[in-house]
Structure formats: structure tokens, C-alpha cells
Design a protein around this nucleic acid. Structure first.
Lengths: 117, 117
DNA sequence: CAAATACTCAAGCGTCTGCTTGAGTGTATG
DNA sequence: CATACACTCAAGCAGACGCTTGAGTATTTG
């Protein structure tokens, strides 16, 4: 028989190995993308970030703007805080969240621009 | 009884209703974000897109650059094709993928800039 | 100090999704 | 025409993830 039905698909670089060799380091340098991109990934989280890029907001307001429960908003805000994308300050009973890094703004704007293309 | 342990958390806009009323329509106008952001979301898919923004590549090359099997690369490329982010051309046995929309490039660049901040 | 409020936390659920696997398609080659 | 190759497809699985729920914390208020 010797019927190799399914070889490992393609083990070597098929076409220009030069291009591959050139791009591979660049792309793997993007390694840390993970946390950041993953956070942008989610619909709700992107909306939260975009809202915060427009104005500092408390959890309830974020929930109202985005259209989820406060618990859900809190869940996402905590996630974003843990990955350093947002920061907060406490004022009495209220907790106000804001973008942690101004560098985020152009990214959000670039995406919004693309979306309204 | 009568112990309301867990009311729906916060049913009304707690703070500035004006801000909320202002932002809500803007944010829900982002509604269609879904497909696009979700596609950017994934680590692998972002790398694929970034690689394609640098050069047209066949599936095997994408796989080699990004570091996944050809089947996995094909899976992501098909996904990206179905949402209109990439396009392809066939040349003999090889299938070359490329960005479908130049408007994507600034978005990818904005993210990369942020990442190398 | 007790009650109310704004939020956080941890556990759990249902769902989604990235990747594998094995088969199938289209193209080139001997 | 048979074989090899590059890629696609569909099914399936394991792990991840969004959101809910109910309890817990910090702060204000009567």
C-alpha cells in the first residue's frame, strides 16, 4: 500500500524562503501582541475603550453607554485595568475609569476611521 | 425576608445622564465593529494580517512566518477572506493572499506603533 | 451603627473558537 | 493517467471566554 494519505501538509517554506526569513523575525517580534490585541478583540471591550477615550466614566455610566449590566462592565474594566489599558480613581462611592495611556487614542481612532470607511 | 440582597445592581445611569445620552448613540453606531475587531482580535490572525501588509504570500509562507501549520494558516486566511479583509489569486498550485483593502494598513500600523511604544 | 449604594470578586454556565485530523479538490508533472 | 503537491473543507475536541449570580467590600448617609 504505502498510501501516504496525509503528509504533514507542507513542512518547508514552499516559495521565497528569503521573504519568510525576512518577515519571520519581524512578526515574532510582535509576540507581545497577545494581551493588547486580545483586549481590543472583544466587541464590548472595544466599545468600553472607545467610550473612555471620549470621557472619564464611572462603572454605571459605562454599563449604560455600552448596554450591559454593571457587573459585566465591571468585569471588562477590571480586565482592561489588569492589562494596563485603563486606570481608575475613586471618588466617594463612585469609581471613575479612564484610558491609562494616551497612546491608545490613535489606535482607537484608526479603527473607528476604518469602520466608517 | 424583605432582604433585598442583590438588586439588579444599578438600573439607572448613576452619574451624568447627559454624558451617557451623548455617548450612547456614538458607541452603538460602532455596532458593526464585530467582524472586523474580532478578526483583529486573535494573535495569529493579527500576525497574518501584518505579514500580508508587508508582502503578498502563499499559504505555506504565511504558516512559516507566523509559526503554525498550513492547515491552521489556511483556516485563518479563509476566515479573513470571508470577512473581506484579504483577497487571493491562484498561480498554479500556489495560492497567494494579500490585503484586500489598503485602508487596513493604517490600522495595522497604528497597532504596531502602539506595541513598540 | 445600621442601611443603602456603587462596585468587586469567585464560581459556574453555555457558547464560541483555534487547531487538529483525515478526506477531498485543483493543478502540475513524469 | 498516475502521482505528487498546495491547499481547502468538515467534523470534532479541548480550552477559553463573556456574562450571570450571589456574596463580599468600601463608602456614604440617617
Amino acid at each position: 500500500m504505502g498510501k501516504q494519505t496525509n503528509p504533514p501538509v507542507c513542512e518547508i517554506e514552499c516559495v521565497h524562503a528569503d521573504k519568510v526569513d525576512e518577515l519571520r523575525p519581524v512578526v515574532s517580534a510582535l509576540g507581545g501582541v497577545g494581551e493588547f490585541v486580545t483586549n481590543l478583540a472583544d466587541d464590548t471591550r472595544f466599545k468600553v475603550l472607545y467610550a473612555l477615550s471620549q470621557s472619564e466614566l464611572c462603572v454605571c455610566d459605562v454599563a449604560a453607554v455600552v448596554g450591559v449590566t454593571s457587573a459585566a462592565a465591571s468585569y471588562h474594566l477590571r480586565l482592561l485595568y489588569r492589562t494596563g489599558l485603563v486606570d481608575y480613581r475613586r471618588d466617594g462611592r463612585l469609581v471613575y475609569y479612564r484610558l491609562a495611556d494616551e497612546a491608545l487614542r490613535p489606535v482607537l481612532e484608526a479603527i473607528r476611521t476604518y469602520l466608517s470607511r
